[in-house]
Simulated scan of single mutants.
Amino acid sequence: MSNPIKLFIVDDHQMLIEGIKSLLQDETTIKIVGTATTAELCKQFFIAQSADVVFMDINLPDMSGIDLTKFLIEKYPNLNIIALSTFTQGTYVRKMIENGAKGYLLKNASKFEILKAIETVKSGQKYLTPEAEEALKYEINLQKKLPKITKREKEVLILIVEGLTNNQIAEKLFISIDTVDSHRKNLYSKLNVNNTAMLIGFVNENKFLDS
């Protein structure tokens, strides 16, 4: 008989952790080797111990699960991380996958789906719930359609969204007011808007700065 799959759970809600434990307690193919309610506790576990699969909450109190996923994969490339989230937005799915997650489950997943996800990623494949897969496709298509802006234009855009004037932006970025004005006009042109209000509206509506 092969060794059970070692599962580690990261979630800031103890009740959810207990729920998964209860759900999987009779499964001989899965062994829960540890849990953590913060990113720091998760990091401490992996210093001395290991797991095959990690359930990763995206919303942690001390660090986002997206950043923690990147950190863990860089240090332990063989880890199979599955996002466990209430979020179905494509941005979250894309960022988790980009940072090395092998799967994406919603917190209302059934026992059957949880087991299927664990076994799928352990076998080297990706597992996305239908909702996550749909959201990811939509997000990828959206990213393809969105205009590309330069790094400097993005810096200016962030400050415009924060409400800074051209003078304040120039001061903050150590560039001339004319240069700021030029970047602002380029942004208006690229994003097909006519004023600051429309620019901010476009950013919010398309989650443009989340990419």
Rank of each mutant, 00 (worst) to 15 (best):
F55V: 04
F71L: 12
L84V: 04
A39H: 08
I73N: 09
N80A: 09
N80I: 02
D57R: 01
T86Q: 13
N59V: 11
D57E: 08
Q44K: 14
V54P: 08
T86A: 11
S50R: 10
V53E: 11
V54C: 12
M56D: 11
Q49S: 15
F45C: 01
M63H: 07
E74D: 15
F46G: 00
F45P: 02
F71C: 03
F55T: 11
K43G: 03
F71T: 09
I81R: 01
N80W: 05
K70A: 15
A48F: 04
V54M: 07
A39C: 09
N80H: 15
V53W: 13
P61L: 02
F87E: 14
T38H: 11
L68A: 05
S50P: 02
E74V: 00
K75V: 02
I47P: 00
A83Q: 11
I66H: 03
P77K: 02
I58H: 09
N59M: 13
L72R: 02
K70F: 12
I82G: 13
F45E: 06
I82N: 10
F55S: 10
S64D: 13
K70W: 10
F45M: 01
I66M: 04
D67K: 09
L41F: 14
I73Q: 08
P61E: 01
I47R: 10
N59Q: 14
E74Q: 15
A39V: 04
K70E: 15
N80Y: 10
S64K: 00
S50W: 06
G65N: 05
I82P: 12
I66C: 03
A48E: 11
A39F: 06
F55L: 14
K70V: 03
I73E: 11
L41T: 14
I81V: 13
P77F: 11
I66P: 06
I81T: 07
V54L: 09
S85M: 02
A48L: 03
K43I: 13
Q44M: 04
V53T: 10
Y76W: 14
N78H: 14
C42I: 00
I58K: 04
I81C: 07
S64T: 15
E74R: 12
V53D: 13
E74S: 12
F71M: 07
D57I: 01
P77E: 08
D52E: 10
I82M: 07
L79I: 05
F87Q: 10
T86E: 14
T69P: 09
L60K: 02
A48S: 12
Q49F: 09
K43S: 08
L72S: 03
F45Q: 06
L84Q: 07
C42N: 06
E40S: 04
I81N: 08
D52W: 03
T88W: 05
D62Q: 00
F55P: 14
A83C: 13
N78R: 10
N59Y: 13
T69E: 11
L79T: 07
I82L: 14
K43M: 13
V53A: 10
D67M: 08
I82A: 11
Q44L: 04
F55N: 12
D67G: 01
F46E: 03
K75I: 00
S64R: 00
T86V: 15
A51V: 07
T88L: 06
E74Y: 08
S64P: 02
G65I: 01
A39G: 15
V54K: 03
I58W: 05
S50E: 14
D67L: 09
F71E: 15
L84W: 09
D52V: 00
A39L: 05
G65E: 10
